[in-house]
Amino acid sequence: MSMFGQVFVKNNQYKIKGDFHHLTPNQPIRNADDSWQLMGVTNPRDMTYIHSYGGEAVFFKSLCQGKLMATRCDNPDCESRGTIYQPFRIHCMECLGKNTVIDMTDLAKNTATIHTFMVCNRSGAFTILDKPIKFINIEFDGVATILMSYLSIGEPDIGMKVVPIFKKSSPTYTILDLSWVPAGTPESELPEGFGF
């Protein structure tokens, strides 16, 4: 019986166990219009990547704790000093100094507004979210950039006030652990596993 590939880090090295790929036989591709002559083959492949969040790990681990982390350049010699970035940027794009990690959860709860949005009826393979997916781009007071995420409840509109919700139960540890609902939504209506 196979098990999902699992990874942990020990002594700064990846340690892996389980199955990282699954063998499936290739199949011939034949031409139905020409006596089923051979045209090619399928090449099935099921792989598991090992991906480091690096300096962004604090952002992703904080989501399931109900916190939205951002960064700010505090270099006194940088023209961009004081600029707050969401999406989280590890380094300042001007001076390339290490940004300070800040908690902007309250700022998001109080000032998040939909900058633009779209409703996605088709998605690519491997999408976990149910369709239609309501992409929203969110602006915050005092933040230089505009975060892309998704709305879990209601219909989006430009200028709508929204608040963050976090997947605190069974988190995926991906950006999908962060979602948004219209301001004033009661906690009882949130999707399973999510909380404010």
Binding site: H51, Y53, E56, F60, P87, T116, F117, M118, V119, C120, R122, S123, G124, A125, F126, T127, I128, L129, I133, F135, N137, M148, S149, Y150, T174, I175, L176
Partner: peptide
């Protein structure tokens, strides 16, 4: 659909790609 997924890998894989895996969405906003 897998082609759409592969194209969406040209978005940021941690912050945008998981949101639908389809590039049209990034233009639709």
């Amino acid at each position: 659909d897998e082609g759409n997924f592969l194209i969406s890998c040209a978005a940021d894989k941690d912050w945008e790609t998981p949101l639908g895996h389809i590039y049209t969405g990034y233009y639709a906003v």
